[in-house]
Design a protein around this nucleic acid. Structure first.
Lengths: 230, 230
DNA sequence: CTCGCAACTTGACAATTGTCATGTCGCAGC
DNA sequence: GCTGCGACATGACAATTGTCAAGTTGCGAG
């Protein structure tokens, strides 16, 4: 059975936080709670979707294996984020695989529960649509980044997203290993290393899984500047 | 008022074809029908979404302007396809701009109409979710392609999508100009030219806006082969 | 019909990135 | 403590792509 602390996190998730309490209670009571070890598979590409997944703790990656065996990381989720909404509702196979990147706690909401609730209250459908839209928006942003920014700029933006301040300096912890960060940003680990060295010139120091940003404003200017200016 | 022929196309669109006839009739009677000239703007990034758009004829591109002024083409739609579903339902600003690439006929379904229908019949919500999911899936595929395939391979796949046969040779017409194709595939026009020349070795000849594929199977093998093998 | 522009192609060059090889470092297991 | 492995950094090299420049072509305006 789930800890109350986990339920509290679930209530704050992007998927559930805009739903009426009464519905959330129903969903929570039907949910399945599980822990995963680092490296454990959550589901595989082509598998039929049966649930929506909400991350309560840890990090999860979604990735695709191309026919040639190359792995493309599509996205990485952490506490409060959910994935698989659209797929679960359509009863179609997953277009990606999911794996725990660190030890994880995940809540699974079986899709039949969700479907029947949607048929009772259309608000739920709209809410899920919103969450799906957020993913979609994120993917559009990723596409734009890949096409319009250099590797070092993408890394800069990644670091800025990890820091939650507006100005000044700060330290951020890299949430997962550099191989995965590289995949997430569409580059090889070697290129990530080189990108980090370039960022030295805009006040970024890397130490282990720890990054020191001397001035967020400078870094942001760098991330948004025209690649050809450099 | 709309021609019956246009209504017939609208009924076959991915968005509407799975809905009950009765609902479709209601939607069609509230829809706004418009023609656009080549180059005309349909909506701008940051503008508030008021409708879902269904392409009846012609080609439409969705693109984003980065802060530096570079244009990134996110996707291109044609007859029977729809866009803006998720955004319209949330009453949020568009994350992209839309422009007619050729002369276009477009049907606009005002979002309030759709919202009120969704509240009456949850099936509609599920159906829209499906359509949104299709876009999402397409974006995931694009991301994978950008990260894992060379330019020439992306062009090969683009040509294969235009041809609707499984084997043998065929001619396909390039639906819009090469500058846009390049943008859509995440490369510069010059790179597209070079990609076309490389495809000569796998039986592709380009003539104006016309491509001749001598054997689709050969081209498909090329598109899916490991980039490092070449 | 001519002019001029925009789309397109091609070549040369530079920048970026992937690939391969080598070496260091931290860490788990013996 | 030693050993071995995987993550990470770095250098050399090749491949791909963007950039710049020059030339061709098609097409619409006048």
């Amino acid at each position: 059975m789930a800890h109350e602390a986990q339920k509290a996190i679930a209530r704050q998730s992007l998927l559930l936080k805009s739903l009426p309490d009464q519905h959330v209670d129903t969903l929570l009571s039907h949910a399945i709670w599980r822990s995963y070890d680092r490296g454990e598979t959550i589901f595989l590409q082509e598998e039929e979707a049966r649930a929506v997944h909400v991350v309560l703790a840890g990090w999860v990656k979604l990735f695709r294996m191309s026919p040639t065996g190359a792995e493309a990381v599509v996205s990485v989720f952490t506490r409060g984020e959910s994935f698989g909404e659209a797929v679960a509702l359509r009863n179609v196979p997953y277009p990606v695989s999911a794996e725990a990147v660190s030890a994880c706690d995940i809540m699974h909401i079986p899709s039949p529960v969700l479907l029947s609730m949607m048929k009772e209250d259309p608000e739920i459908g709209i809410s899920i649509l919103a969450s799906t839209f957020t993913h979609l928006h994120g993917l559009v942003a990723q596409l734009e980044q890949l096409k319009a920014q250099t590797g070092a700029q993408r890394v800069a933006e990644f670091l800025l997203n990890l820091s939650d301040i507006d100005a000044g300096g700060c330290d951020v912890e890299l949430p997962y290993d550099k191989m995965l960060i590289a995949g997430r940003l569409g580059m090889k680990p070697e290129s990530l290393s080189r990108a980090f060295s370039r960022l030295k010139s805009v006040g970024v120091k890397i130490n282990r899984n720890h990054a020191e940003i001397s001035d967020v404003t400078v870094l942001r200017d760098y991330a948004e500047s025209d690649p050809s200016e450099k």
